[in-house]
Simulated assay, not measured.
Amino acid sequence: MPAAAPSPTPTSSPSSAAPQAKGPLSGKTVVIDPGHNTGNFKHTSEIDKKVDIGTNLKECDTTGTTTNAGYMEAEFTLDVSRRLRTVLEAKGLKVVLTHEADRAWGPCIDERARIGNEAAADAVVSVHADGVSSGNRGYHIILPAKVKGGAADTAKIVGPSRDLGERIGSNFARTTGSAPANYLGSGTGLVVRDDLGGLNLSTRPKVFIECGNMRDAKDAALLTSPEWRQKAAQGIADGIVGFLGG
């Protein structure tokens, strides 16, 4: 009696899920850097130690500023960063935060840059708020200058970082209703700097956003509003998504 023919091997398991369509954001990573740390105020000796930013030495970190009522910049930056993460993850992006106030102080500025580099981030945004005299209002985006020295070489990121910064700025203005800073940037909301280790040491497209001035009463009223902080996160996210082609 002839042997029975073997059953055909199934080409797919009945329980296997259909492959998901790959969108423009698939597989991309964003690193969000909440500026400062609430614990820095209690660890001034640690954050005062100098680190190498390629072109020179600079303090590991600073305390950041506060509103006149005592709301810390580090509280603001972490809240906005968490909101930003939620929005970006809903778009399918992988999001890494440099810290979540889960450490006593820091990280230092060189470590913040390294986290973005090691994550091979497609975009990195450091979230801040300014602390200048009252009457100075508005947001500004800090872009990396072209610098080379030691471990710093920003030649490859200057162009894409400007694109990222311009997209964030226009979306931030539209979503929050805030105007570009009236005290620097000549009304463009864009400032180029060569003295920030977080930018100098980055090998990935990266910008800082100063969302407003904590020392101005009108800006402080916005920065301390949860509803406004959600708008800020949405505006930054829209800029990032646009930069990444989403």
Rank of each mutant, 00 (worst) to 15 (best):
E227H: 09
D102C: 01
L88S: 07
R215F: 09
S186N: 15
K28Y: 09
A74R: 13
L78A: 07
N68Q: 15
I236V: 05
T11Y: 11
D61L: 02
G169H: 04
A5I: 10
T175N: 10
T66H: 08
G185P: 13
C108M: 09
R112H: 07
I168N: 03
V30S: 07
K218A: 15
G70M: 14
N182D: 08
G159Q: 04
K148S: 09
G235R: 02
E46M: 14
I53L: 13
A90D: 14
C60W: 01
G197R: 03
N40Y: 00
A145G: 11
A18M: 06
A101G: 06
D195V: 05
L57A: 15
N182H: 07
A90G: 11
A4E: 08
E227F: 03
T224E: 02
L84M: 05
F76K: 02
G35P: 05
H128D: 10
G177A: 03
D219S: 06
D102A: 06
P6S: 03
Q20P: 03
D52Q: 04
A18V: 11
G235T: 08
G245P: 11
P205V: 06
T77Q: 00
A233L: 07
K94D: 11
A129I: 03
S81F: 07
I109V: 14
G23R: 11
K146V: 03
G135C: 07
A217I: 12
L84F: 04
K58E: 15
K148G: 05
V51F: 03
T63S: 12
V127D: 02
T86K: 10
S26G: 13
T86H: 09
A4T: 01
P107L: 06
G185M: 10
V80E: 02
E46T: 12
L143N: 13
V51Q: 04
R137L: 05
N171K: 08
S12Y: 00
R174M: 11
T9I: 12
D110M: 08
G242S: 14
T65D: 11
G189E: 13
F172G: 04
A129V: 05
A217C: 07
T175W: 13
K49A: 14
T65V: 10
T77G: 08
S7H: 12
G23M: 08
G70R: 12
S202H: 07
T188N: 11
C211E: 11
A179L: 10
S186D: 13
S45T: 14
S45C: 09
R82A: 07
I168H: 00
S225K: 03
G116N: 12
T203G: 06
E118L: 15
G150N: 10
G64F: 01
V87K: 13
G135T: 06
A121K: 08
G245C: 14
R83L: 10
V124W: 05
D238N: 09
A145N: 08
R167A: 04
N117I: 09
V31L: 06
F208G: 05
A90Q: 14
S126P: 04
S81T: 00
Y139V: 00
H140A: 06
R82M: 12
A113M: 11
R85V: 06
P6L: 08
S170V: 15
H140Q: 01
D102M: 05
R114L: 03
G177V: 00
S161M: 00
A90M: 07
P19I: 06
E210N: 01
A232D: 04
G149L: 12
A217M: 09
M72Q: 15
S170N: 12
S7N: 10
A221K: 08
